[in-house]
C-alpha cells in the first residue's frame, strides 16, 4: 500500500473534521506541512454516509462513497483522516471492485471509468511512509506520558484484512518524539459512536470505565486519532478524576514544528492547556 505518495495529496476531511473537530483538521494540516506534504481538499466532497447510510441502505452507502471517488484526480491516492470514513470508503470501494453492476452504475452516474487501483490511505500510512522516527523534530514532548486510544480503528472485518492495521504506530511515534507510554487495557474499546446520543445511559458508564483506567495508568493524557472517539470521551465522561484527551495530530504538530495553536486547545471540553504548560510544551 501507498508506494508512491505525491507531495500534494487529494484529501478527504469528512464531516467531523470539517466541523466539530476543526482543531484536529488544522493540526493535521500543520503536521503534514512540516513533513513536506500538502493536503489538497477534494473539491466539493460529500459525506461518506457514515454508519447511518451503511445501516439503512447499502446502495446509498456505495453511491455516496462513489461520488467522492469520482472527484479524485486519476492516478493519485486519496488521503482520509477519519478512521470511520476510511472504513466506509474502503468497504464501498471493495464492493465496487466485486460487483459488475455497481461498476456499470458508477460509470453511468459519474461519466468516468471506475478505478479499481485507487488507493484510499489514512494519514497513518503517510506517517509510516515518511518514517516519522527518522524525521527531524523541533521540539520534544518532554516526557509527557500517555495512553493510546485507537477505539475501533484497529478492527478489521474479514473483507478488510488485506489492509494494514497500524497497531502500535501512535506509541512508536510519540516515544520517538520524547513522550512516555503507559500500559493500559482499553486502547481498542469502542467509544459507542452514535449510541452516545441514542442511549447515553449505556455509553456513559463505558466511557467512565475507560477514563478511570486511563487515570489509574498514571498517564497525563489519552491520545486518540479519531474525532468521534475524542468527542465521546470528552462529552460523556462523568468521573470526577479525568485527564485531557489529545488528538494525535495535535501532539505531532507541536513536536514537528508549529508550536500548537492555543485555539486548538480551547476547543477541548477537558482543558489540556495547564498540562501542556506544566510540561513546557506550550
Amino acid at each position: 500500500m501507498a508506494n508512491k505518495i505525491p507531495k500534494r495529496i487529494p484529501y478527504f476531511p469528512g464531516c467531523s473534521m470539517a466541523t466539530t473537530a476543526k482543531e484536529n483538521n488544522q493540526s493535521l494540516n500543520a503536521m503534514c506541512q512540516s513533513l513536506g506534504y500538502k493536503l489538497v481538499e477534494l473539491k466539493d466532497w460529500n459525506c461518506c454516509g457514515s454508519s447511518s447510510a451503511h445501516s439503512l441502505n447499502h446502495d446509498l452507502a456505495v453511491d455516496l462513497a462513489s461520488r467522492n471517488f469520482s472527484l479524485v484526480p486519476k492516478g493519485k491516492p486519496m488521503l482520509v483522516a477519519c478512521p470511520s470514513c476510511l472504513l466506509r470508503l474502503r468497504q464501498a470501494h471493495h464492493r465496487l471492485c466485486q460487483s459488475y453492476d455497481a461498476r456499470v452504475r458508477y460509470e453511468h452516474k459519474w461519466g468516468r471509468p471506475f478505478d479499481p487501483t485507487l488507493e484510499i490511505i489514512h494519514y497513518f500510512d503517510l506517517l509510516e511512509h515518511v518514517g516519522l522516527e527518522k524525521h527531524p523534530h523541533l521540539r520534544t514532548l518532554n516526557g509527557l506520558s500517555f495512553v493510546t486510544y485507537y477505539g475501533c480503528m484497529l478492527a478489521q472485518p474479514p473483507d478488510m484484512q488485506h489492509y494494514k492495521a497500524h497497531r502500535g504506530l501512535m506509541e512508536k511515534a510519540l516515544i520517538a518524539l520524547g513522550a512516555e507510554e503507559k500500559p493500559w487495557g482499553y486502547g481498542a474499546r469502542c467509544c459507542g459512536t452514535f449510541l452516545s446520543v441514542v442511549r447515553p445511559e449505556v455509553v456513559t458508564p463505558l466511557i467512565d470505565e475507560i477514563m478511570v483506567d486511563a487515570v489509574q495508568s498514571k498517564a497525563d493524557c489519552i491520545v486518540t486519532a479519531c474525532s468521534m472517539c475524542h468527542l465521546n470521551l470528552e462529552m460523556r465522561v462523568t468521573s470526577k478524576k479525568k485527564i485531557p484527551v489529545m488528538h494525535f495530530s495535535e501532539l505531532l504538530a507541536i513536536a514537528l514544528g508549529d508550536a500548537g495553536k492555543k485555539d486548538w486547545f480551547t476547543r477541548h471540553l477537558i482543558d489540556p492547556i495547564p498540562l501542556l504548560r506544566a510540561r513546557g510544551i506550550l
Binding site: 454508519s51 451503511h54 477505539g151 475501533c152 478492527a155 472485518p157 474479514p158 469502542c190 459512536t193 449510541l195
Partner: peptide, 21 residues
Amino acid sequence: WTCVGCNTCSTICPQRVDMAA
C-alpha cells in the same frame, strides 16, 4: 438497533463470520 457496527466481533471471530455485516 443497538449494534453500532464497531467490527470488534467481526475482527475476533475465528471462523471469519462478519457479524457486523
